[in-house]
């Protein structure tokens, strides 16, 4: 069975005043129906650009340089903008960090959710019923009374529910959630992710969750791909990657997060800063910060090493380990 979404060797260029950078470089991953893939990385690591490439929503300065993006076996890169628009409207949904930017402040909640049903030939009453139905699914209390409310009358968590409802209205097969809960309080964060997971259970949609929060990944995701400076450095099932991280960056990242149980005086840390995209190291991009770098690392980008069927790591250290 082919996966729902298959991205292979994706390269995305962004033109900037300082020259062209490859914001996404040779990125491959796939998402199956009913599963959630976490794209994890720090700011500037290319997570969001990867998603925008899949959605066909790159900014004007962006361009896909190479690779394939297949959705349900169809090549998305060969689609016209018109066709992509239709796919976005019905097959692939997207939720952004700040729901206020996704909602139009001038229209009521009801109008904005109803948008998705306008294409179908339904009566006003039918549309209303459907809208109420979707709002109920995202657990907005008393949805029939909230139809006429405007986004500013809703709290952050409620707005994010509306944004999810708008996406659900078209029952997408794939939902891309780009830091959907970063702007929300912790207790609300969990409610929203729990809601997404329930919806996934009902509809079997595939999900990509972009996040920098490793706690959320371990609680809500099936698979994870760790990105650093535009590339994936390690990928596999969350339980395996988090329990036994192989890439020094993944290890550093997991160690750097303070946890409630530890009694450490200091946090383990990754020295230095991520590289600027205009001035990338020649070999492995993590090499300048890597505690275990080898001679080869500075000059050659590591190959993929596979661990079992479902894990891969891009690190020269693996060469000795596997041989």
């Amino acid at each position: 069975m082919s996966p729902l979404l298959n991205v292979e060797n994706l390269v995305t260029w962004i033109a900037s005043p300082k020259g062209v950078i490859s914001a996404v470089d040779d990125v491959s991953f796939s998402v199956d129906s009913g599963r959630t893939l976490a794209l994890v990385g720090e700011s500037g690591s290319g997570k969001s650009m990867t998603c925008l490439s899949v959605m066909g929503l790159l900014p004007e300065s962006g361009k896909i340089g190479a690779g394939r993006i297949e959705f349900k076996g169809e090549n998305l890169l060969a689609k016209t903008p018109r066709e992509m628009e239709r796919i976005r409207g019905s097959q692939i949904g997207m939720i952004l960090q700040d729901p206020m930017t996704a909602l139009n402040p001038l229209f009521t909640i009801g109008d904005q959710v109803a948008e998705a049903f306008r294409r179908e030939k339904l009566s006003k009453a039918e549309i209303r019923d459907r809208v109420i139905d979707v709002l109920r699914k995202v657990r907005i209390p008393a949805p029939d009374k909230r139809l006429g409310a405007y986004p500013h009358q809703f709290s952050g968590g409620m707005r994010q529910r509306v944004a999810i409802a708008i996406n659900l209205a078209s029952s997408p097969r794939l939902l891309i959630a780009d830091e959907p809960t970063t702007a929300l309080d912790v207790t609300v964060q969990l409610q929203i992710l729990e809601l997404l997971r329930q919806i996934q259970g009902d509809t079997g949609m595939g999900m990509i969750l972009v996040t920098h929060d490793l706690h959320l990944v371990s609680r809500f995701c099936d698979d994870v791909a760790i990105m650093y400076a535009g590339r994936i450095v390690e990928a596999g099932p969350v339980s395996k990657v988090f329990n036994a991280p192989e890439h020094p960056y993944t290890q550093g990242l997991l160690d750097a997060v303070p946890t409630l149980d530890q009694d450490a005086e200091r946090l383990a840390l990754i020295p230095g800063n991520p590289p600027t995209m205009h001035n990338l190291p020649g070999g492995c991009r993590f090499e300048p910060r890597c505690p275990v770098s080898l001679g080869q690392c500075a000059s050659e980008y590591p190959e993929w090493y596979r661990l079992g069927q479902d894990r891969r790591v891009a690190c020269w250290q693996m060469k000795q380990r596997i041989a």
Binding site: E42, D185, V186, G252, A256, V257, L267, L269, I270
Partner: peptide
């Protein structure tokens, strides 16, 4: 970002013990 967070938190701890600073820390985390 996470990796930078750890650096700043460690720095704050170091400064505290070096200069005997008193901290009021506010965080949602």
């Amino acid at each position: 970002d996470v990796s930078i967070q750890a650096q700043i938190l460690n720095l704050l701890k170091d400064l505290q013990s070096e200069f005997k600073l008193t901290y009021l820390l506010i965080s949602h985390d």
